[in-house]
Amino acid sequence: MDPILRIENLRVEFRSGNLRHNPKVALKGLNLAVQAGEIFGFIGPNGAGKTTTINVLLGFVNPTAGNAYLFGVNVREPIARQRIGYLPELTYYYKFLTVEELLRFYARIFGIPRREADKRIDQLLRLVELEAVRNRPIKTYSKGMQQRVGLAQALINNPELLILDEPTSGLDPIGRMKVREIIQRLKNEGKTVFFSSHELGEVETVCDRVGILHEGELCMIGRVSDLKAQFQTDLERIFLKIIGYQVHG
């Protein structure tokens, strides 16, 4: 079966304004494949290249070399994003709109017919528990509520692949639990989830497979259970060992 997400020899360099300086290499020939129905955790220390990989997948950054495909379509084509949902780390939405208006706007971008969009919006607002405040501008929402707006917009097109960039960052324990529940629910529905996170406990609980990225290179990839059996320890220690961090004491 063809993978839903495929990355081949992906290299991303960022040039500074000064031509004398060497370009900063964010990704050094990354290869990765995620199969349908998987929950894939993408972990790595800050600056490892996780967000750059997501930026390439979403078309925000063009790769210097190599290619990335979603559903077999090159990510340079906007149509590659027709069947995905994206939840950014922080909430970036039009704050002058209400959550209902925002979801309707995104539904139109996806070309969802009005009747179907109405039904979907009702379902999503129930799912993220924002039904009671659907007509209030987003600027009046708390941080947790705004993060739930993010989840709702990521699911508006009933995506087959969900890309989550540190989805629980900055959330309280209840918020984290809700996000985790939603990810689990999506897994049960057969959806594919690709998410980057620093919360290794969460990754261990939720993910089928993990990839550990360090300095732009994929150092390790495998099933969580296999890695734990191989190293005889938890994911956090495996991660620290792979990135070469010495634990003192």
Partner: peptide
């Protein structure tokens, strides 16, 4: 600046 461009361009829009 408000980073609303990211969720927008993550949709199938050029």
């Amino acid at each position: 600046e408000n980073r609303t461009i990211f969720p927008l361009l993550a949709k199938p829009v050029t």
